Computed example of a mutant assay.
Amino acid sequence: MKAVVHVGQAGMEGLSVREMEVLQPKAGEVRVKLKTAGLNHRDLFVLVRHKPTDPPLIIGSDGAGVVDAVGEGVTGVLVGDEVVINPSLGWLEKTDAPPEGFEILGLPFHGTFAEQVVISAVNVAPKPEHLSWEEAGVLSLAALTAYRALFTQGQLREGMKVLIPGIGSGVATFLLQFAKAAGAAVYVTSRSAEKCQKALELGADKAFDSNGDWEQELGGEKVDLVIECVGAATFNKSLKQLRPGGTVVTFGASAGDVVELNLRDFFYGQFRLFGTTMGSGEEYKEMLDFITKHQIKPVIDSIYPLEQYKEALNRMENAQQLGKIGFYI
């Protein structure tokens, strides 16, 4: 089968489209013939974490397709089922943190940038009927991350005020859509005027320049919840916009992972800080129910043929996208 494989060299230079062996599902597994796949920032990190001396690895975490083989003992999944793939491996129930052994599809196990993928049957779910194949293929990792950040860790409720710095990524656009669907007021930032305008079209109540004066832009208004998916570049600016007793949920560090924190301001503010990453199978099902109820669709930036993986990765690395980047398989 055709696949995008990383081996032999560090970074993007180690990627190529090559033929890989078609695997057969073992007991409890299914094989999915993929129609589409989705790109995530994690795929860029994998190119660093996967060493040149490691065995060849098919990258990619997101995908959707049709089940074409079922392993022994599998119930509830049939050949011909149209499914989306949950890339959160080994984390079934909603818990404070993932259990030991938790992994994400695409490292260390072969991922979705291929014509087929073999995965545990518990990691596939029926494709939401309101989603196209392009939308279904880019959904899972970003939407699951956003759902847990907002609802499990952030305890989002109707009427709350939410700040999302750095609108533009797939997760950030889901955060915006989910929070609005839940009845929150949503404020976003970006260095791009185009991305701010798009966020307003998606329902953001305010959108302003990340490099500006946030207090002035918000007119002194404070928020209940900040979802920090940028990192050190915005963390302390975010904290200043939080009301006393408010919550910060963080999962991103693309703009720096070391923050200087004024502890006195933090404890006098009675702030709460939660980390998060991905989510459980239980939250994945909740997320699918939520997007079906509210008919939410991923914001699609662009879809490439699989052979144009370099163009897609470069677009993400340069932060040119607004929403999700995907592949036709």
Rank of each mutant, 00 (worst) to 15 (best):
Y187Q: 00
K198F: 13
V186C: 05
T173N: 01
A204C: 11
F178I: 03
A185S: 14
T189L: 09
T189V: 08
K206N: 03
V171T: 12
K180H: 10
A204Q: 05
V188Y: 06
A193V: 15
K195E: 06
F178W: 04
A204R: 00
Q177W: 06
G168A: 04
K180F: 12
K198Y: 13
L176E: 13
L175G: 08
E194I: 07
S190V: 06
L175P: 07
E201C: 00
S169L: 01
E194F: 12
S192C: 09
A182F: 11
G168K: 01
K195M: 11
E201K: 07
G183W: 05
G170I: 04
E201S: 12
Q197N: 15
L202Y: 12
G203Q: 14
A182I: 03
V186A: 04
A199Y: 02
L176K: 00
A204K: 00
V171I: 14
L200S: 10
L202F: 13
A179Q: 09
A199E: 08
V186D: 00
K195S: 09
E201P: 00
G183N: 05
G183Y: 08
A185E: 10
E194S: 12
R191P: 04
G203S: 13
L175R: 03
Q177D: 11
E201I: 02
S169A: 11
S190E: 05
S169G: 15
A185L: 11
E201R: 01
K180G: 10
A204F: 04
E201F: 03
T173R: 00
A204Y: 04
F178R: 03
T173S: 02
G203L: 08
L176T: 06
G170C: 06
S169C: 01
C196K: 13
C196H: 05
D205I: 00
V171A: 10
V171F: 07
G170L: 01
R191V: 15
A179D: 06
Q177Y: 09
L175N: 13
E201G: 02
E194N: 06
S190P: 09
K206T: 03
T173L: 01
Y187P: 07
L202M: 14
G168I: 01
